[in-house]
């Protein structure tokens, strides 16, 4: 199964980025062959609608699950329309989040925020 995680760095050990839409990179991880691939997030510098653009890229990379600390409503709408499940990360370690996911210990993300729309997050 291919999963995606918003990350701060493009090398292991990477830390999970607090933002989905404006994360600098995404880690695309294949749970079967345990391969990691980092992709730059073209949406990070968008003037607006970064979540939608990032979600479009995630959908296009044909992943089956997104692991993220939070997600805005517009991005969630795109991701869910593609049938991709969103899980809530625990802590910032990418490795432990992947382990938790593999062991079924991550919960689905249920709180979807209404977006910051240029106002910045806390």
């Amino acid at each position: 199964m291919k999963i995606a995680i918003p990350v701060e760095d493009q090398c292991i050990p990477a830390s999970v980025c607090a933002s989905f839409g404006r994360a600098p990179y995404f880690l695309i991880y294949d749970t079967e062959d345990q391969e990691s691939r980092f992709v730059g997030n073209q949406a990070a510098s968008s003037q607006g609608g970064a979540g939608i653009k990032a979600a479009q890229a995630i959908v296009d990379s044909r992943i089956q699950a997104l692991l993220t600390p939070r997600c805005g409503e517009n991005a969630a709408e795109v991701i869910r329309a593609a049938g991709i499940k969103i899980y809530k990360t625990a802590g910032t370690s990418v490795t432990s989040n992947i382990n938790d996911f593999n062991n079924g210990r991550l919960e689905e993300l249920t709180e979807i925020h209404s977006g910051f729309h240029g106002r910045g997050g806390e």
């Binding site: 607006g48 609608g49 479009q56």
Partner: peptide, 16 residues
Amino acid sequence: CKFNALAHVNGRLKVF
């Protein structure tokens, strides 16, 4: 769209 108001998912266009 510079504002990213459109997305294409599952063969359908979504308008924000």
